[in-house]
Amino acid sequence: MDKELEHSFIALLEEHQNIVHKVCRLYTNNYDAHNDLFQEITIQLWKAYPKFRGDSKFSTWMYRVGLNTAITLYRKSKRSIKTQEFDAVQFKIKAEHYDDTEEQQLKLLYSAVHQLNDIEKALVFLYLEDKNYKEISETLGISEVNARVKMNRVKTKLKTILNP
């Protein structure tokens, strides 16, 4: 029975692993930290799996566990914070020397998102994943109106980071 559970879980996670990778991409900024967070999310998913009843999609359920792990349970190592600051500075210097091509703009955008706080990152992540405000509000535990208001503020904040 346990083997069966194990098998079905691993097969599902293998199929949907991109969701976890995407969470790690937003919340970490180097290879080691990425793997570290991926590991922790996998453990949390596995621990919660026996209670997964399938009344929501496996992927939807993964968003919740993944974000909860990144925001609440996981402790960042100091190393990754340093790297983040370093990256941000580097991007800023580069920005003055390059033309405003789309690729360059995207690079700056990603670095701007990395400067947001954990909750703002969660909002951006769910937005990028095309989740509606109802899902966003349920995942974070805030009202739909507040999710909308906060999302607009995050957009403004991103603009400010990009055009100081």
């Binding site: 879980f9 293998e14 991926f38 996998t42 453990i43 621990k47 349970l73």
Partner: peptide, 17 residues
């Protein structure tokens, strides 16, 4: 990640707060 990579991961211990 392969099936085996994930299998190895679920055997590890959590370090959550």
């Amino acid at each position: 990640l392969s099936y085996n990579d994930i299998y190895k991961m679920i055997l590890k211990r959590s370090s959550s707060i």
